[in-house]
Design a protein around this nucleic acid. Sequence first.
DNA 1: ATTAGCACTCCGAACAAAAGAGTGCTAATT
DNA 2: AATTAGCACTCTTTTGTTCGGAGTGCTAAT
Lengths: 366, 366
Amino acid sequence: MSSANHGLSERKKQILKAIVDAHIEGGGPVGSKYILQNQQLTCSSATIRNEMAELEEMGYLEQPHASAGRVPSELGYRFYVDSLVEHYAMTTAEIAQINNLLKAKMGELDQILLAASNLASNLTNYTGIAIKPRISTVSISKFELIYLEEDHYILVAVTSTGAVKSKHVRGGISVTPAMLYRLSASFNQNLVGLSADQITLPIIMRIESEMGEDAGIVGVTIKTVYGLLSELDQGEMRVSGINRLLQYPEYSDVGQLQELLGTLEKKEDILDLVSRTESDGINVVIGSESEVKVMNNSALVFKPIVQDGKTVGAIGIIGPRRMDYAKVLATLEGLSGNIANMIQANNQLNGGNPDGGNENNYGIGK
Amino acid sequence: MSSANHGLSERKKQILKAIVDAHIEGGGPVGSKYILQNQQLTCSSATIRNEMAELEEMGYLEQPHASAGRVPSELGYRFYVDSLVEHYAMTTAEIAQINNLLKAKMGELDQILLAASNLASNLTNYTGIAIKPRISTVSISKFELIYLEEDHYILVAVTSTGAVKSKHVRGGISVTPAMLYRLSASFNQNLVGLSADQITLPIIMRIESEMGEDAGIVGVTIKTVYGLLSELDQGEMRVSGINRLLQYPEYSDVGQLQELLGTLEKKEDILDLVSRTESDGINVVIGSESEVKVMNNSALVFKPIVQDGKTVGAIGIIGPRRMDYAKVLATLEGLSGNIANMIQANNQLNGGNPDGGNENNYGIGK
DNA sequence: ATTAGCACTCCGAACAAAAGAGTGCTAATT
DNA sequence: AATTAGCACTCTTTTGTTCGGAGTGCTAAT
């Protein structure tokens, strides 16, 4: 499907691939001689030099300075990722590792994601991220109110994604277990399935009328529900394995590293990027392709975790632009497959909508 | 209380303090001339040199190489922190910042700690950490079971520290809301206040007998309680503001940085250290004082958050050994005070046991 | 006990030279 | 017309050398 003519001769492709591979491996610019040695090509270094000059003119390569070898440009990486990456076959050891570690974490989605990103970082030797994207479509599928003492109770809510969130309520209003029981019944009747902006005044008034003379408790509790829903909208992101970045020479420059770490701290940019992505395949964002300008020399590869057609999470890898895409893609593919299986097994309640076969159509992060 | 004779003359102290201050400020070795200029001393540089030589002999100073200035040793820092730090007065702006940001996060302890460590990092310009230490003494003060579908329900537990944890249960056993209601009543009767190792077989059998012919559900649910308790034992730690470290020259050496980041990733060492600390004052761990060997060139300052005599969390700062202790100590002091107030206001249910005045007795992390 | 003075040590910046790697171009070859 | 060998050229990186500055330790004088 993608071996069509992209305006590049077969030989140019081979050379481009060789350069990217070599650069991924070594990190430095790649010269014509090196390619000749590590590639079976029936031509001489001079020919390769000519081809390289053309590839540079076409925008696939760059030259750090006049007499250095060539380095893939962003466009070069993009082409490489889209059509040249070979499929990396995971070793059985790696597959076993994924199975074991994930099986052990049969907990909530948060923990699975965390474990997965950790594992991804281990397997690939880059930095892993676990993301719960902002989802404004989340609703609550079950309410429960737990009485603690006279003016103090807990709101527990099960979300449509199966997560459980809770919040203490201290309204200063006296409550009884019986009141809470009636209120939670009313909530379960009237609020289930609604997202934050669907909770309208008429609905609230209906609940208040159902509560009769105990209506005073409704307001503060609804407010807590709001807070809870908006917390879910927040999104969250966790990073693991930052130390791994240090082994790559591109981050031995403190400036580069500081930029990247700053971005990882801020989180919003990456969360935005992931939350706005609608492709549920693997996404590869290279350097300045995204508006997250800060990642100049880096690349972000991530895979959303989809459940019932909704993106409930994502795992990803951040590393130097010259990362081992084959391995990263395979790892994320494998992990996400396992996660999909697990949450499917966990939550049969909503009728499975499995991930579906994923082909090699890696989305563009633009 | 600590101006007693430590074997150091007043002048030696002044010189030592001057050296540490200067080194904290500048980062480099400090020479005799510099001290003479920035300190009102009635002696000459030669005298200072002599004193410095003696201080070195006593172990308070070190010389990077033969003709460089002096640098404080670990012992020097320790002495400085214990008896020489001046009290840094927080500006009203800083105090206001603490108040505002914490007030906004009137959520659960986790979030408060996270916000606090973030803030600490901001105010001090070092790296902040938020810690929930391993606490094996935690027990559950309230149970609730939420029915979702025939073989799927949720266990919600309110811990003795006020946190709410939940776990899905899919035992493959059919349950009804009524069964769950009875079971949670029985749990609340029999399990409240028990830590993991206090849940003994007789107790389980009593619950089973109370459940009568529905006893089949007890086993799997108890197992879930166990899992939940042991998760609470785990401890957790979050780091914020790693990027700030990069501005300090000691971490421009990639090796140093990698070591520190590795330690921050692993988390166990620091968690152990904090969990084993019984002092509830501010603790200062300098370099290799602790078994966390990796922190050779760094220092960790942390303050446990105590509630009802139990350590429920901690906030801390990690930075270069030559950190601005005065500011760090003041910041942590201020933050922890606010947090103590907040959780006291939140949880009056257990009868307040406020933190108590904290004096300047910074514990030793040995 | 303190101080002035001085020789000595060591580090780091600045500069120069050499080595290396790789290209672009030209002219010859297939 | 495409390919190739050869060579001059460019730019970076490494290495060596020098030199000034900062700071000490010691000695002799106060």
